[in-house]
Design a protein around this nucleic acid. Structure first.
Lengths: 124, 124
DNA sequence: CAACTGTATTATAATTACTAGTACAGTTGG
DNA sequence: CCAACTGTACTAGTAATTATAATACAGTTG
């Protein structure tokens, strides 16, 4: 379910954060789903447990998961994750739009991209 | 014209790249404009000449400026810069849109942001 | 209570990113 | 032609990030 590219220059712990976040937001891992333990995932990925712990800590600080010693780590719910992530995602989107506009992307082309991304979703 | 925040954790050379690109794309520095020399800008910003050179090298590889030993560095033209930057800017915009969509941003909200960014521009 | 969970601490290695110093090379105007 | 400017190359040192490692501690559960 979770795979990382050890040869990539993007840090392992960050790949884990991104992947888990994606799985939660996509609904693949619904609220309450228990994540693999720090040690077991480290073993599976061939990394150090501390690397996984760092990823889990960041996921918890972002509100994506909840962890408790002795019990494990569990998905906090799609809505909770969205609430925490939405603000920064919106800011990043706005900045990317500004840069694209400066680089010559037209309003129409930008909207075409939105059509692709939000295809089949709410047409509000 | 060019100012950097030395206390920022974003590298100096990157701040220079971003700022020069912005000036060129905005048309403040038209094609043929000579940039400050590596050494003079380094002196002005209180940094090492090599830091500025690194910025200029990246700007040249992106097609924003042209440099020649003995002559100096000159703006390559807004169109040239756009041509080189547009592809990557579009890709970054698409990725940011995907993440924002995952995080719960609605299509309508995204379009509202586009309205802000492209306000007063082409309504194509 | 044994066996699992997460957490904290400290240390260190490894890598990369960044900045710096010095020397070299091309161009140009006086 | 040459002094004074330009960019460039090379090397090195510094800082920050990342990953690893070895323990130890603490909470939960069957």
């Amino acid at each position: 379910m979770i795979a990382v590219d050890l040869s990539s220059r993007v840090p392992i712990y960050r790949q884990v954060v991104e992947r888990v976040t994606e799985l939660v937001l996509l609904g693949v891992w619904p609220e309450g789903t228990q994540l693999p333990s720090v040690r077991s995932l480290a073993l599976e990925l061939g990394t150090n447990p501390n690397t996984i712990q760092k990823a889990y800590q960041e996921l918890e600080s972002r509100g994506v998961i909840r962890s408790a010693a002795g019990r494990g780590s569990f998905v906090a719910g799609r809505e909770a994750a969205q609430g925490m992530l939405r603000g920064q995602a919106e800011g990043a989107f706005r900045e990317a739009a500004k840069k694209a506009a400066l680089a010559g992307l037209s309003r129409g082309e930008a909207m075409a991209i939105l059509d692709e991304v939000w295809e089949g979703e709410d047409k509000v």
